[in-house]
Amino acid sequence: MVLSWIVNTLERDLSDNVLFTNVAIEIWADLEKRFEQRNTPRIFQIKRDIATLTQDQMSVSTYYSKLKGYWDELSSLNALEACSYGALKSILAREEQQHLMQFLMGLHESYVTIRGHILLMSPLPTTQKAYSLILQEERQRQIASNSTINNESMAMLSISNKKNGSGINGITKSRHNLRVPTAHSKAVKVVLINNQPATMYKPQSIKLITYSP
């Protein structure tokens, strides 16, 4: 039954090569050796990509996700051999430490301080914990950066308004009742807009005379 399942799930060119093998375990061992050899170039490529991967302009989340994708694929290609529980635990702990070092080495140099704090922790945190700490640091920086930008924008706006002598709406309005000498000495109501006089009410019979200060 197992033999039939293996043969039926193989591609035609592979099933023809194992068609006359009567033992399932022999077919499985043969296939394992073939695909193990084919995986070697891909394993080499993944390890090279991991060694050269750096954060650069990527966010911490994007960088970690890309690195974890390489780790997961590499783990699927490198099957663990049968061993005792103690040996397996030791292998996994060594692999976890290797992942932590690879993650920290590829971080942008702006995280050098928090990276140093993580390396001084005893025991060393897991890669997931280190990622969480770095991500928190990134978010705090973004909040501080946004606050700085807002403060600078408000300062620039205030300076610009002072230079232009303008208020909230860009125009400073002040109203005064000015008595200007005329033929009949009547008051003329004037509005100053940006320090320029604009007559609001001026009878046609009155001639407005402007005096320079």
Rank of each mutant, 00 (worst) to 15 (best):
V2T: 06
L3C: 05
W5N: 09
V7E: 12
E11N: 04
L14P: 04
S15V: 11
S15H: 10
D16V: 06
N22K: 13
N22M: 11
V23Y: 13
A24C: 10
I25D: 13
E26N: 09
L31I: 15
N39T: 10
F44A: 06
L53V: 02
T54S: 09
D56N: 09
M58G: 03
V60A: 04
S61M: 15
L67Y: 14
S75R: 10
L77C: 01
N78H: 08
A79W: 11
E81L: 13
A82F: 10
S84Y: 10
K89N: 06
L92K: 13
L92W: 04
E95S: 06
Q98L: 03
H99I: 06
L100T: 01
M101I: 04
Q102P: 08
L104C: 00
L107I: 09
Y111F: 12
T113S: 14
I114V: 13
G116W: 11
L119H: 01
P123E: 01
P125D: 03
P125Y: 07
P125W: 00
T126A: 07
L133D: 01
E137H: 11
I143N: 09
I143W: 02
T148A: 07
S153D: 12
A155P: 03
K162C: 04
K163S: 03
K163F: 03
K163Q: 07
I168C: 01
I171K: 00
N177W: 00
V190I: 08
V191A: 06
L192N: 05
Q196Y: 10
A198I: 15
T199M: 14
Y201K: 15
I206V: 06
K207A: 14
I209L: 10
I209C: 01
P213W: 12
